[in-house]
Amino acid sequence: MTRLMPRIEAALALLLALVWISPLLFALWAAFHATTDAVNFTLSAPLILDNFRTAWDGAPWLRYFLNTFLLVTLVLAGQFFLCTLAGFAFARVEFRGKGTVFTLILLQLFILPEVLIVKNYAIAASLGLVDTIAGIGVPYMASAFGIFLMRQAFKGVPMELDEAARVEGCSLLGVLWRVYVPAARPTYIAYALVSVATHWNNFLWPLIVTNTESARPLTVGLSIFGAPENGVDISVISAATVMVIAPLLVLFLVFQRQFVQAFLRAGIK
């Protein structure tokens, strides 16, 4: 009995893992097989690339990839800039009203940009940002989460380094740039991974704020491509899905440890 239990447990753990990756495995299977072979699970069926060709020709994927790439870059640059400045102010500058503003900003952790779609669309429209990549990215740039994260990272920097730099004649921004930013490198990497993964995958707001392919990111493109009224079959949808998730998935598998660490750092600290 005592010998048997660990084995049963190991088998269950493995079974659960297989169940968990099975949707992905089936998508891969379908993407590389003709539809009839895919749904009949003909194991001997030949591997083909036709689905990818059909999928690729069916939508302006290159444009979508470019848009997503520009979007995640823009959001990340904006977040780094805004959250570094604000995080630094909260960590190391003393002034009246700081505590109140900080509480106000923490509140934003719960005012999800997703929930405010009704008014945010009106705001984006009045700023002329509808159907632009900036319009997709801009509501996410001043993230309370990012400000909080950078504040925590900057608080961990030893005061001695700060004072030494000031004695050397560094200005406030000089100290931030020369001492704090380099010291917070791991946090920046973690934040970057979480942010890129989030915005690569984001859907609802991009769906609302874009209406032509010129700004549409991959997720929105994929949802339109797979819409039932387009009548594409399951193998072609699988191929398109695999195409869309491949870059992030490969990135994840290669930098797995960093990814897990990043999500941890972002969540726990």
């Binding site: 992905l24 993964a197 995958n201 949802s223 398109a240 998730i245 998935l249 999500f263």
Partner: peptide, 11 residues
């Protein structure tokens, strides 16, 4: 966790 919900829907 690293897959978009839209892709998950397709899968």
């Amino acid at each position: 966790t690293v897959l978009p919900m839209i892709a998950a829907g397709n899968l």
